[in-house]
Amino acid sequence: MKTLLKISLAVMITSSALQAAPKWINSPQKNCTLNGGEISTNGVCKANWKDATAICASLEAKLPTIEQLVDVEVNCGASLHDNEDNQAYQSCYKKKGFSSWSYYWSSSPYAADSNLVLRVYFKDGDVYAHSKELSGYFRCVRSGQ
């Protein structure tokens, strides 16, 4: 079941501008499956939040903060809402290695409920709070590289 709360991208835009550019890392299949993840039909590793965190740690990396994910959206020209028809935005985030097929995990907890973590759905450009138990895509980061 999807989370009931949707969080606006507007809150995140101001904090993303000063972030150092992270190095984005995709999990190799071996790291993915050995640490609790699974390979999706389009070849991307997906896992629940706990396993995604472990997979990133196995790569000497971590899950990105919500600010790092939102920074990708902002740099690709996302508006506050309704990005599905924004072709420049849709093309940009895909060129950066993200998919429109799933939500992407962040390391950022949702302040109002410790059982929820913030995720980005690149297709619409919004931020959501979801249960840590759900499966989703993720990319790992090494900061400042």
Rank of each mutant, 00 (worst) to 15 (best):
K6G: 05
A88S: 15
C92F: 09
Y137N: 04
C56F: 11
D113H: 11
I7K: 03
V74C: 01
P22V: 15
G97F: 06
S79A: 10
I66R: 07
C32E: 08
S106E: 00
C76A: 09
L80E: 10
F122W: 08
V120I: 13
S27K: 01
L5T: 11
Y93S: 03
F138L: 08
T41G: 09
S131K: 02
A57S: 11
W101P: 02
T3Q: 05
L34E: 08
N31E: 06
K46N: 06
K123W: 14
F122C: 03
V127T: 07
K50Q: 07
A129N: 14
N26L: 14
C140P: 03
L34V: 06
E60K: 15
E60T: 11
L69T: 03
C140K: 15
K132F: 12
N83E: 11
Y89K: 01
Y93R: 04
V44L: 00
I7H: 07
N42E: 07
G97H: 01
S102R: 02
S106R: 07
I7S: 02
V74T: 13
S91Q: 06
K6N: 05
W101G: 05
S100F: 11
P109C: 12
A61R: 05
L5Q: 11
A21N: 05
Y93Q: 06
S27Y: 05
I66V: 12
D71P: 03
Q145I: 10
E73L: 09
A10F: 07
A57I: 10
K2A: 13
E84D: 15
V120P: 01
E38D: 11
V141T: 04
Y89H: 00
S99N: 09
L63E: 03
Q145L: 13
P22I: 08
L59T: 14
N115H: 09
